[in-house]
Nucleic acid binder design. Structure first.
Lengths: 342, 342
DNA sequence: TTGAAAGCGCTAACAA
DNA sequence: TTGTTAGCGCTTTCAA
């Protein structure tokens, strides 16, 4: 390409570069640009990265792309990345700790400038610490137990979270406010901070009113699926006397809620007349199911944007301040909740 | 790292390499491995790529990640890529031609070994040809008009498609078989081959029975959204006499179908009693909406697998044979379709 | 304003 | 079995 224009590669490089094209004679530059266009020349980003030591690339680790929540998060990341010419490299963990290690390793090998991790389990603390020693890490959506350094001080972290405790508390308080006194939750695994928060919010709401009984089964959902919600609700409701049966169920996830509704129907009961159900996430189409699901809407895209901004500020060496951003969810009332009929 | 082990970098490289570690003394190799582990050393994939001329990376261009169909396609690609240690780089176009050019350009700059494109518009023919001159291209899901070379011969291409014509024909034939005689379709844009196929299948089914009338409105959906389905159905049904109103609607997409159902209800009609509705895609939760939607299930994941396999065979220099793989969809009957009541 | 030269981290010939 | 050397394609001093 440089040859076609009859110049040295260094000159060509300068002509093509956004910040030093001023250093080259405008007629030479024109010649270079023309030759480049003619040959369809694209600078080799791999070589550029090797030379510059930076890849203009951002690792984004999500648990599961078939969960629209994470897709929305990615869109938020992209909102911020695109104008900077940064390419997000997306990896999925399927909530498997081994896969998390593998994909993060791979992203590091590819020298992403930073990594946003939205798929940690609370047992990943040590691993994340080791990653932080290598590249900037932003924790999104899910957090870790407070880290301490060797002196017992709390070590700063960059994270963008949503207030799951508040989201759950608001939803469950709503159930109590409209009259429910026997309530149960369908819990997600406590290996994930989000579900811990939702559980705490649930309990805070429950204990605020001494007349409310918590009828939850101790078993926890191993996955956030319709099938699992169905299974847990079956064991929750079966072989129970009427007065030991909840009149409302708070599910940690929309799909669990859908499974709950399926189970309720199969037992010959109705939602919301016999049992109200609340979900979590406000997934697409969840307003069109039967009955339209009351749920908690999450600021996924906003969270993605914040995560990306934290990443870029970390890259540009704002090594200084650890940051915790906390966004608030919003309860959305639809038809799956109603006052108890008895 | 090599220094810590006290060996030359070349030796370290060999020790770490999967195919030449046999060439190094096993005790030196052990030393190298230990030093690497101790330092948490990860070979720089950027440098490896530059040296090897290959990135072990596969570009995957999709229209829209919030469409679960494409996520499923991605999973299929991943099924094949993971065992080979290949990393898919995902990019979205949002069905914008400019964005398609931009993201493919970027993938080429990053020297992906091949690119799977599932987001072409029929007007992208020239552009795709220019890309094919640079790297192996696999067309997935959507195809292009048959290309001709300068001699008028049909030029080979690698593509993995689904038979949309057959999918649509099967669905519409079902409507006819259960008695519908006045039918309309909600068309997707003819800029995308999939919708052309669905339209053809629709017409083939319609014309097979002379008693069936096509009551479609000429307007076409500009996006595959609930809002658009709602809008089109409103204009389709409003100001029509009963006998000029379809008793069944075939939508080119599930979301359009959901919008159609919304519109039907708002006009005081019922689905399926007054108007049956068929969708296309079998999206998640679409079996839980009210009423559960009859639709066409697509082999997205399979298609992803095939696309990836085509990509890898192209990379390994099977430059030979152009291939067209065509997978068949499956009609799924649920409760949004019933015989006409009049 | 341009060219020459070095070097980013790695691997593959080639030599020893 | 290991070391030496060259070079992948680029950018950036440094010199001219």
């Amino acid at each position: 390409m440089a040859e076609l224009a009859g110049v040295h590669v260094a000159t060509a490089s300068r002509a093509l570069s956004a910040n030093q094209f001023g250093l080259v004679n405008s007629s030479t530059r024109k010649r270079v640009l023309e030759s480049a266009a003619q040959l369809g020349y694209r600078p080799n980003a791999v070589a550029q990265s090797l030379r510059k030591g930076t890849t203009d690339t951002l690792g984004v680790v999500v648990a599961d792309l078939s969960n629209p929540y994470f897709v929305e998060l990615l869109r938020g990341v992209d909102d911020e990345a695109k104008p900077l010419g940064v390419m997000p490299l997306v990896a999925e963990t399927h909530d498997d700790p081994g896969t998390l290690r593998r994909v993060v390793s791979r992203l590091i090998a590819n020298r992403v400038d930073a990594v946003i991790v939205s798929a940690v389990h609370i047992t990943d603390q040590e691993f994340i610490k080791s990653v932080e020693a290598q590249i900037p890490v932003i924790l999104a959506v899910r957090t870790l137990p407070d880290p301490e350094d060797s002196h017992g001080h709390i070590d700063g972290r960059r994270e963008a979270l949503q207030d799951d405790l508040m989201g759950a508390r608001t939803a469950v308080s709503h159930l109590i406010n409209i009259g429910h006194r026997r309530i149960a939750q369908l819990q997600g695994t406590p290996a994930i901070s989000s579900f811990i928060g939702r559980s705490q919010g649930y309990h805070e709401a429950i204990t605020q009113n001494p007349n409310v009984r918590d009828l939850s089964h101790q078993e926890v959902a191993q996955s956030s699926t319709i099938a699992e919600g169905y299974r847990l609700t079956k064991t929750l409701l079966e072989h129970r006397l009427l007065m030991d049966r909840p009149t409302a169920i708070f599910a940690h996830n929309d799909l669990l809620a859908v499974g709950a509704i399926d189970a309720i129907r199969e037992l010959g009961l109705r939602c919301p007349e016999d049992i109200s159900v609340v979900g979590y996430n406000d997934a697409p189409l969840i307003d069109h199911i039967d009955p339209p699901l009351s749920t908690v809407r999450l600021p996924a895209r906003e969270l993605g944007r914040h995560s990306a901004r934290l990443a870029f500020s970390a890259i540009s060496g704002d090594a200084s301040s650890p940051v915790r951003i906390m966004l608030v969810p919003e309860f959305v009332e639809r038809s799956s909740t109603a006052p108890p009929s008895i």
